[in-house]
Amino acid sequence: MTGEDDKTGQDKRYVRPYGDATGDGMVQLSFTLPIPHGPRADGAAQQLANKMGMDPALVVHSHPIGKDFSFYVVYGSVSHIVDLDAVRVVEREYPLLTPAEINATVKKSLRRKLVVVGGCIGTDAHTVGIDAILNIKGFAGEKGLEYYRELRVVNLGAQVGVPDLVKRARAEKADAVLVSQVVTQRDAHVQNTQEMSAAFREAMGEARPMLVVGGPRFDPLMADELGVDRVFGRGTTPGEVASYLVHAISTRTVTKPTTRVTTKKTRSSTTKAGAAR
């Protein structure tokens, strides 16, 4: 391990942003302030940049947005130094694959289509979650599982009874069962899910399909408590679910996260790609 003086190697430990000279720390920043445009507002932008560690900070551009807002572009040098040794990245236990890679993996490992049965259980009529994951329209600019050539998707929709879900999963020879719960009261989502996993254990034992639940109220750490293989929380995209499914199927071991999985999300919901426009 070489020290902070190493300017050339990949194994440098301390880094600063790079503008056009090593160590200059230059960054660019843009933001909006909820105040009218003017010298005072420019000063406010500069102060913000200073407080963020940019010194000197140069407000290179500003303009009004309507009467009450103003927009800023700031360039400046940040005083912060990153210690690469202190960077901790919690990796997802499975790689994020593209639809083509997912199809290829299924083809190679199963030599048939991977069957996914999905639905909302209990009284929840909100299929928002399961549809975002299954419908081709998808979510956050990603296509739903129906889009994947090597996945066969059976979407049972809302208010599916647990016995029906088990029956259908068995009839379709499901590899995975996906259940979403969006609207819930007094932890109904937890009870419903436990009821479901118990029913699958009882009916099918070890031969049960993978059980995956999702919804904004679920904590991804609850898989064991719920008796399922995987829990997905708010903002999960179809690609993450599909990647998990092929990972779990192709490794043939049911993977459970041991630590909180911080799915490295770089994207949140989007306006147009996520819905008709």
Binding site: S30, F71, G141
Partner: peptide, 20 residues
């Protein structure tokens, strides 16, 4: 013309995204 946002696939449009 449906106005495109540079932050498509990143965030729902901010005030400044629409302005730009």
């Amino acid at each position: 013309l449906l106005v495109g946002m540079m932050t498509e696939a990143v965030v729902t449009p901010w005030l400044s995204d629409r302005d730009l």
